[in-house]
């Protein structure tokens, strides 16, 4: 149990995917303009990350390893992620229109999010079990969502601030992200994995 907790904390804070591993930067910059859309993106990512780490674990364990073709894992994981996202979108559209309205726009964006592929590949690298993979995926998504929501809140405030014209827009956002990454370095060494 403590092992799972350590994995969760490690993925969420210590090795935060955005600010420490620098994965998934595209949605981090792209969808952080508004607090509301950042929240939607976080939910969608949490959903997809957890689901796709489970499915890619199964594919790796029961297809790639028995056939001795682990070198095809990148290819097959991309396939797994694309199919998972697409299926989630279709099922959501039919079964829960409300949830679809919240997540719908962001789901296709996640297909090409490198954080999702990164989680799947790191799971294999760390030789996580099924439960550990799920927790690692969920932890990564939690960290991603937390950082995204914090960042979007800061950016919404920056809209109001009096920023020198040469720093307006993306430059100040990048500086903010850098300072946040520095802050997250404080978690380093808290859990050693």
């Amino acid at each position: 149990m403590t092992g799972l907790f350590v994995i969760f904390v490690s993925a969420a804070f210590v090795n935060n995917f955005v600010l420490v591993r620098f994965l998934g930067l595209c949605p981090f910059m792209g969808v952080s303009n508004q607090y509301k859309s950042a929240l939607g993106m976080s939910y969608a990512t949490a959903f997809v990350l957890t689901l796709s780490s489970i499915v890619s674990y199964l594919v790796n364990e029961y297809l790639l390893l028995p056939l001795d073709i682990e070198y095809l894992k990148t290819l097959s994981f991309i396939l797994v992620i694309a199919v998972t996202v697409q299926m989630t979108e279709m099922i959501l559209h039919k079964s829960s229109p409300l949830l679809y309205q919240v997540l719908g726009l962001f789901l296709p964006l996640i297909t090409t999010n490198c954080a999702v592929l990164g989680v799947a590949l790191l799971n294999v690298q760390q030789q996580n079990s099924l439960l550990e993979s799920a927790f690692f995926g969920f932890g990564a998504a939690f960290g991603f969502g937390l950082v995204l929501v914090l960042f979007s809140a800061i950016r919404e405030r920056l809209e109001m601030a009096n920023i020198p014209s040469s720093f307006q827009g993306i430059p100040i956002a990048l500086i903010t992200a850098g300072i946040m990454a520095l802050a997250f370095m404080g978690f380093g060494g808290m859990v050693s994995t």
Binding site: V59, L63, L64, L67, D68, I69, L72, L75, S76, L79, V80, V83, Q86, M87, M90, I91, H93, K94, S95
Partner: peptide, 29 residues
């Protein structure tokens, strides 16, 4: 080994293809 790899990938892609077509039909909006 190549043949196995090819077959494995075909199996995976084929299964996913069938699955997604089924889902698309079943959950058509």
């Amino acid at each position: 080994n190549y043949l196995l790899a090819l077959l494995g990938m075909l199996l995976l892609a084929g299964l996913f293809g069938i699955l997604i077509v089924w889902v698309a039909r079943k959950f058509k909006v």
